[in-house]
Amino acid sequence: MNDNQHSTELGDAQNRDVDRFDDPGLPEHRHRRADSDPAADKRAERQVVVLFLISIIGTVASIVAYFVFRPDGTTDGVRISTLTLGLGMAFALLGIGLAAVHWAKTLMNDTEVTEERHEQRTPDAEREIAVQKLSDGAADSGIARRGVLKGAALSALAIFPLTIAVPLVSSVGGDWNVSKFRHTRWDKGTRLAIDPTGRPIKAADVTIGSVFHVIPDATEEERESHAWITEKAKAVVLVVRLDPRDLKEAEDRKDWSYDGIVAYSKICTHVGCPVALYEQQTHHLLCPCHQSTFDIADGAKVVFGPAKRPLPQLPIAVDDEGYLVAKSDFHEPVGPSYWERLK
């Protein structure tokens, strides 16, 4: 073992080389004023006492603040309560801390002491005893001779965690049905509604330059259930109306928009933040999390940032009453990419 050969040279590189300077030893101890001047000593003691007193005052002040400033639920009320309790506490703590340190620095003996270090390594003789004990024990157990026993013991130890892991893993991921990523709450005929109030939107309401944050039309009961949050996490949509002349549409998507009104998923194709910063003049949609920028006028293609894919488009139409409705669900999974997205 290389470690052994070298470890005896515990540091002190300086001594190995002949042409090196000698360690001059510890510098001369410099005495503090308080060490020789009784007046300075007394003064330091008084300072320490005052600091402890400040702490006591701080504690008392914080108790007083507790009774005087009852948080009343207003911003000002909570702020003054937090402030006074905090200041009282800070004085109480800082008083103790500064007093103890000042005490140590000025009044406790400050002569440096030197303690020897010892090598980390166990001395050889003791090592031998340790090794002997281990081999005695191993011999006692007979682990080396009894191969089958060793195998059985190791196998048992290796697999017993399965008794916990199997039931855990079976349930920890819910129903493990990851195909849910593919579908959202949108369906043919689902009305587009305003987030969060749930008012359905008429095509005529969407004027040029305006942007609507949209959820699928649902009953109030559904919207107040927890399952809704998970559905909403996939279903949120952004609706804007452009001058039809500004809109570039792919041939196969010409009927996905209605009179310049387009609807795109609000969930970023990068890592899933809601992309919501719509710049009316450039038709650019910016994600505040990582600055992926999508061009709404051009199929929501990525023009900047870490996203690769365009935002999925929701095909829309207008129903008899003039309300915007979805023509179908999205034609691809919304949100961030995952391995089997296109399978």
């Binding site: 309790l85 005490w103 140590a104 620095k105």
Partner: peptide, 18 residues
């Protein structure tokens, strides 16, 4: 010193929290 420093750290955090 170290004990005192604990109170200093706590004190500074109380100051910030307040």
């Amino acid at each position: 010193k170290a004990g005192g420093f604990f109170f200093v750290v706590f004190g500074v955090l109380a100051l910030m929290g307040g």
